[in-house]
Amino acid sequence: MSEKHHIIQVWFFVGVLLLVYGFLILASGLAEWSHPPDIVLAELHAPVWWGALMLVLGLIYCIKFLPDRKA
């Protein structure tokens, strides 16, 4: 993104955000698996598959846009 300034690309920060949130949400979903919260459609365990999706995407972004240390 930045030719003049060599700024870390925003996509890397997006990856970090998704990675951390994906991990937290997935872990939370697994922890409550046997006693889901009192919400509609709790039996679908949305935090598990949604958290996993975010985790995978975050990992991909982090690896693909990892800052170049030589820059």
Partner: peptide, 12 residues
């Protein structure tokens, strides 16, 4: 949001 989201997703 409160209807469908529990801990974690609610924070998100």
């Amino acid at each position: 949001l409160a209807r469908y989201c529990g801990p974690g997703l609610l924070g998100l």
